[in-house]
Amino acid sequence: MNRKQRLLTHLLLLLAAAAYAAPLLWMIDTSLKREVQAVQIPPVIIPHPLRWQNYRHVLGDPQFDFSLFARNTLIIASLSALGAMLSSSLVAYSLAKIRWRGRGLVFGIVLASMMIPFPVFMVPLYRIFRELGWIGTNLPLWVPAFFGIPFFIFLLRQFYLTIPRELSEAALMDGCSHFGIWWRIMLPLTRPALLVVGLFSFMGAWNNFLGPLVYLTHQSSFTLSVALQVYQSRSGGTSYNLLMAASVLIIAPVLVLFFLAQKTFIRGIATTGLK
């Protein structure tokens, strides 16, 4: 690359970065303004004075019980992550490392079921959860994760296939059970992949909106996503500076998690597209 090209590349990169960062920066910016300043024309770029009270106001709002909603979300997200990691790796192991009749069919179902849109299940699942007495509890949002998530089964199976057959066969010869192999050999070997699954399902549960919107009927069990929408649409409305402050509060944990796990994230996403 010559200098001109390099300059052009940098320019384009800067443009792209500006376009992608601007909405988030504007969100933070608005969240630190008074309402009157937030709607001023022409827009005020640097909030003055910095209004940290907005955050205190949001956190202290009885209608937006952040700590409660964060807790609800965290419980659902953690249990989903745990369930997805355990069940998906078990199933993936069976599909990749054990020879049994019907596994081809099961793998086919795994692939096909990724294409089924959620609305097809929405109504009958609601009925099933009603019969189980689960409506109004958080069970519908995490219990299914313990029964294997197709996308993650697929992902982990691809990982298991890259592990040499000899390894598990030798262990079998030594009298090790499949469960032992899975627990002692496979799980440690594929820890990064497992973590990807955990992270993704955690994030999926954190960001999920339609599920909680349908299944969580009691305000006290709401997740952050639903709570944010409710905060926006409550009677009398909510001004944008407060809405942006609430949004910052909901986005922040996700971004923190991302910065802690940047590599795992990028790695994980990168592998999903391959083969």
């Binding site: 965290l74 955990g198 998690l257 590599k263 795992t264």
Partner: peptide, 24 residues
């Protein structure tokens, strides 16, 4: 290196979870 990073993340996740439970 990746495995080590992964390890860090696992610890961080557990820590966040525990902290949250504690705080809330």
């Amino acid at each position: 290196r990746f495995a080590r990073a992964a390890h860090r993340v696992a610890i961080a996740m557990v820590a966040i979870g525990a902290a949250a439970m504690f705080v809330f």
